[in-house]
Design a protein around this nucleic acid. Structure first.
Lengths: 113, 113
DNA sequence: TGACTGTATGCGAATATCCGAATATTCGCG
DNA sequence: CGCGAATATTCGGATATTCGCATACAGTCA
């Protein structure tokens, strides 16, 4: 039985395991927003954001509401917000190691090839 | 600046985005354990667990302590534990949809090929 | 209907993840 | 040193993610 729970948690983590999707969730913390507004804020390709939204939808992290032309997105449960808050504290409480981890991890695009 | 934070969170989520790694973290909630003990509990290949442990180490989710022959693993910060607790509540509070999501998502290996 | 805005989906290529099998490494002991 | 136990790393192939581009779909308004 707890195996299903573990798979479930893994799915949720996977849904959140991308900077763009985290940005989306953060933006939705302020309240529901139409997709277009998210696209503006994040400044990425419309199709790309829509794909990430599809993932969040599939994992039921967000819910949608259609209003005429637009689709409003919102977080399904504020608990997900809390998770992000916890991780922010975690990040700052281990700031130095955390940063070095990020550095080490993704040679984050060479300044110039 | 918050971009680094988002990348950091994504890395952590990614680290946790696998049932085996969740099982490891759950096991470590009870306290530190040597790798061999984890292998016994989870009943998976030694190499496989070691690979997952390497990932958790790289993302600094766990820390290690060497004692002679063995390597003891422990959670670096209990906040990660709390995250799992929050998700458990989340899971149960949306139980029916959650289960159907799991079903829908991964036809979880057909009973017989 | 047709044109237009907003959103979603399909496809292909580059990259990353996962697992098993084989091989290394490290430590303690005789 | 050389062996055995505990743990780590490497490699290869199958599968999954991510992205850009092109296209499809839905709703509104004239």
């Amino acid at each position: 039985m707890p195996d299903a729970l573990r798979r479930f948690k893994a799915e949720i983590f996977q849904a959140l395991a991308h900077p763009t999707r985290i940005a989306i969730v953060e933006a939705l913390q302020e309240g529901e927003q139409p997709a277009g507004s998210l696209i503006d804020q994040l400044g990425l390709e419309q199709a790309n954001i829509s794909q990430h939204l599809a993932i969040l939808r599939a994992k039921q992290v967000v819910t949608t509401r259609r209003a005429g032309n637009q689709v409003y997105y919102s977080l399904r449960d504020p608990v997900l917000s809390q998770v992000l808050v916890l991780l922010r504290e975690y990040f700052y409480s281990h700031l130095s190691e955390s940063v070095s981890m990020l550095d080490a991890m993704r040679p984050p695009e060479p300044l110039r090839k």
